[in-house]
Design a protein around this nucleic acid. Structure first.
Lengths: 255, 255
DNA sequence: CGTGAGTTTGATACCCCTCAATAAAGGTGG
DNA sequence: CCACCTTTATTGAGGGGTATCAAACTCACG
């Protein structure tokens, strides 16, 4: 009999946390922060949980009894506003940590955007483990710095007024993440639907659709289905995102 | 209780870090994270630096050789966009940490909004200190969680479309900060100018001015000069900020 | 008292949100 | 395999709020 749970190599190594470190150099790539020993020690106190696509992992206000470490799949961290609309703070992927809390209570609701596999680490065990392991704590600090930078980039995105700039910057974020994780990414994967993208960008889903069309029309991107994008003009995308270091005067709209 | 005023001589107790912890209860107030011993040990590797109002502390892209811990004064963390406009990610106050880096390089520019006194802690010394002191690291983790939540609230603010909602939420942020720090805050202090507020809210400075006028006209706030506000109608402010439960019944406090 | 930065107020254009309908994709059962 | 239905995505038209440009004003400071 084949046991998938224990026999799956990537799973057996234990929790995995990757980030671009705050002080060390990593060549712009996410690096595995945890050592083999740390991962096995964490594996002892962790359990593996699975969620279906769309399933809720926990809700804002729940007692924060565990932290999750994504093995595979995508998670969205969000808040439901009084008018029932959803605001998404972050999309979280493999090697990310989920479960930000305040005074023992989760501050956000998190849901599985795709089918999800994750480690569930009880905070009580994690806390005592942390207090004994300075190296592990340092790695958590590195990860939190990474998340802080990511959240700031999201804030930078939301500071942009035009939908074009927001969508362009969103595509850059996705591209950066996928190139920092994998080796190559000539094609971007958008696991979330238009509605989620809109909730993350702070614009309406219609605006997302329209902006994609505009980018496609300008020859900046091209779609392979609705969830795969290829950036055909990085320079233009960079300019539209407004992060471009060089702002050439000719914007080439006449071509 | 020790009260600090701008211009007071720096306290000799050493670096001070306050936050609302992620898991422990603190009654909604910021608590001092560092023990007396930790503060003195950090004081050994720290030096005290001063900046004039408006002065630049460091610039995005500089080698991140130090972390700063604010003793008194206000700091803004920002980025200058290609079109020379400024985007502010956070205002930082006493007991905050400044100096977020990525691969040894500062990710933002920081400037003193008011006259500033701070501890300067070299990262090399801090790093070795951290690796030896698990308790200190845990406290840094708590502080980073706090900053992460604050940055998410900022993102939530920027997700709002109307200037009214943004300004209202901004006032709530200031109020929360000042009530979480001091005992009372019947009057809010806005140390930054309208331009900085606009850069933080992602709206034009004219819109800030107009919105303040609207709030004043509605009897929600009243000004004492240009830098002191009194909230005269908290319920209304809450409703305008859109976080309030007014006219919404769902409370979402399930176990 | 004079100067200049910071702030307030006003008019117009533009972009995005809202509402509405159509079209495509995905899933289910016959 | 196809018909059917639900969900998701696209496209269109009109209205509202904010940015932008421009000018008057306030206040701190020399």
């Amino acid at each position: 009999m084949i046991k998938r749970h224990d026999g799956d190599p990537p799973v057996a190594h234990g929790p995995s946390v990757a980030a671009i470190p705050p002080w060390a150099s990593s060549g712009g790539k996410r690096t595995q922060l945890l050592s083999k020993e740390e991962r096995s020690r964490l594996a002892v106190i962790a359990s593996i949980v699975r969620f279906k696509k769309g399933e809720e992992i926990y809700r804002e206000g729940d007692r924060a009894e565990a932290v999750f470490n994504i093995i595979s799949g995508v998670v969205k961290s969000c808040k439901t506003m009084p008018d029932k609309t959803e605001r998404i703070f972050a999309f979280l992927f493999a090697d990310d940590l989920v479960g930000l809390a305040k005074e023992g209570v989760y501050v956000n609701t998190t849901k599985a955007v795709t089918a999800l596999t994750a480690y569930r680490i009880p905070v009580s065990a994690l806390e005592s483990r942390l207090r004994k392991d300075a190296a592990l704590e340092f790695h958590v600090i590195c990860k939190l710095c990474h998340e802080l930078r990511e959240t700031q980039r999201h804030a930078l995105l939301l500071g942009r007024k035009s939908a074009l700039a927001r969508v362009a910057m969103f595509l850059q974020l996705i591209e950066n993440h996928q190139t920092a994780s994998r080796e190559s990414a000539h094609q971007l994967h958008l696991p979330m639907n238009r509605s989620d993208i809109a909730a993350y960008l702070g614009i309406s889903l219609e605006a997302v659709s329209r902006t994609f069309r505009a980018l496609r029309h300008r020859g900046v991107i091209s779609f392979n289905g609705k969830h795969y994008v290829r950036v055909t003009n990085h320079g233009q995308l960079e300019m539209l995102a407004g992060n471009g270091a060089r702002e050439e005067k000719g914007d080439g709209t006449d071509g």
